[in-house]
Design a protein around this nucleic acid. Structure first.
Lengths: 187, 187
DNA sequence: CAAATGCTTTTACATATGTTAAAAAAGCAT
DNA sequence: ATGCTTTTTTAACATATGTAAAAGCATTTG
């Protein structure tokens, strides 16, 4: 599914809205390891991972922390820095060779201020992000590390073949050692 | 600050937009203990707490869990159920005598589909909610229960005089016993 | 006022998870 | 393939936080 199709699935879009958005989308291939956004840079784009994998990460007390993981057909962007247009203390890198469709945030913001359907698209996307965050809070509060791992596997059965375990552990809010214990079953 | 003023602070609003919103807002006093939304009900309103205090809660494994606390000039609503218009598994009750301004969600949704400024208001409110959720995830992941308690006190210095400790503990994702330990300093 | 109900603290104990370090396994490059 | 780096597992130990139960306070209510 393309970014435009993903947009249209969130909010029905007229021809004119689709054309405005399509004109703002750029598609590009990137190699594994490519840094989409380095630390300290003001992010210009919101990205959509047509195919591939990436993560958002940062350093906390000198340790690498994975804040977010995205696989095929998911969005990836340093949202707080994006909407405030301030230097990001989080970085984005690709974990596989990937095909991305990206939209310049400033353009999207302008379109929102001009076009009703696009503003509502933006609204619904933000609402989905909000719901996702709520779910993540609930998972962190009430599920054990083992249960969060199971949940992740349920959603992305092949993720362990694609993403290094240390990143999964960090994303799940636990440690490599704990996750290894969980996988061994010897608890 | 009124709800309309809170709206205008998020997104500049023309006279027409303000009038449309104002017509949809109802203001009312409620006593402490009043249930704004019982379990299983489809929420009709998004609420703004002009003055007072309330909480969103639910039962998890038979235990009362506080999902959200709101004090003066904060929004309170069962957002997931509100936007999906499905029966809420969370309830809302007031913890003090309170003055509320409420807006019917169906009306707000209609206005969003018709009015560009209001759609962008909705978009920005959702974005703020998203950011708040991100912060909460980060706090849960990296702060100890003691640090989360300190943070809460920093934001709302008088909250311990207004909200029972058991609700604070639950909201912070810890237990009454732990929070009591934290407060005693004997760790 | 007294009784009752609800709230907070304390104690004792259990356990999931973190930390550090080292070994084993897997992946990658020359 | 051979070695070099990265990733994963295992081990031993420390600790924050949860659970359960009881006692002490405070608030409400008849």
């Amino acid at each position: 599914m393309s970014l435009l199709q993903a947009f249209a699935a969130v909010q029905p879009l007229s021809e004119s809205a689709q054309q405005l958005l399509a004109a703002a989308i750029v598609e590009k291939d990137y190699p594994k390891g490519h840094v989409l956004l380095p630390f300290g840079q003001i992010p210009a784009y919101m990205h959509y991972l047509v195919k591939g994998a990436g993560r958002i990460y940062y350093l906390r007390d000198g340790l690498d922390v994975t804040d977010y993981l995205a696989l095929d057909q998911q969005f990836i962007g340093a949202v707080p820095a994006l909407i405030t247009q301030s230097p990001s203390h989080k970085a984005i890198e690709l974990l596989e060779d990937s095909l991305l469709q990206s939209i310049r945030y400033a353009t999207f913001e302008e379109l929102c201020q001009q076009h009703l359907e696009i503003a509502n698209l933006g609204r619904k996307m933000a609402l989905f992000g909000f719901l996702e965050g709520q779910q993540r809070v609930e998972d962190l509060r009430f599920l054990s590390a083992a249960e969060r791992y199971e949940e992740l596997l349920r959603k992305h059965p092949t993720i362990t073949q694609r993403i290094p375990l240390k990143h999964l552990a960090s994303f799940l809010g636990t440690t490599q050692v704990s996750l290894s214990r969980i996988r061994s079953g010897k608890q």
